[in-house]
């Protein structure tokens, strides 16, 4: 199972095993990682699952799609270069070790 690490705005880290194909958001929410609100449950409709992808993984994770891109523009925390909606990042072995920082404001 690929691992993913979440860093809270206050620096607290949580590392979880992700089910292959589950999103970075699902993995967090199902295990109660705080700060990822994910009100729409992954439909790319709420922008409350905003994360900043660690630079080392930015290329592997890739760019947001057009819809996600517009959602990010309206996210509660200002977007950064590696901003993504975590419901749109699906975990696989390629992303093993992924590190994301959780955006401070989600709602």
């Amino acid at each position: 199972m690929p691992k993913v690490t979440y860093i809270q705005p206050d620096g607290v880290e949580t590392t979880l095993d992700a089910r292959d194909g589950d999103s970075v958001m699902e993995t967090a929410v199902k295990n109660g990682v705080r700060g990822i609100v994910a009100e729409c449950g992954g439909a790319c409709a709420c922008a409350t699952c905003h994360v900043f992808v660690d630079d080392a993984f930015a290329a592997k994770v890739g760019e947001p799609g057009p819809l996600e891109d517009d959602m990010l523009d309206g996210a509660a925390s200002d977007r950064q270069a590696t901003s993504r909606l975590s419901c749109q990042i699906k975990m696989n072995d390629d992303l093993d070790g992924l590190i994301v920082r959780i955006a401070p404001e989600q709602v």
């Binding site: 089910r19 194909g21 589950d22 699902e26 929410v29 199902k30 295990n31 109660g32 729409c40 449950g41 439909a43």
Partner: peptide, 23 residues
Amino acid sequence: QRPPLSKAFLHGAADIESLELRS
């Protein structure tokens, strides 16, 4: 979560475990 039941689930893009709200 119910929303995928009328969407992704019908096309096999979501299985029952993936619908769970919490583990």
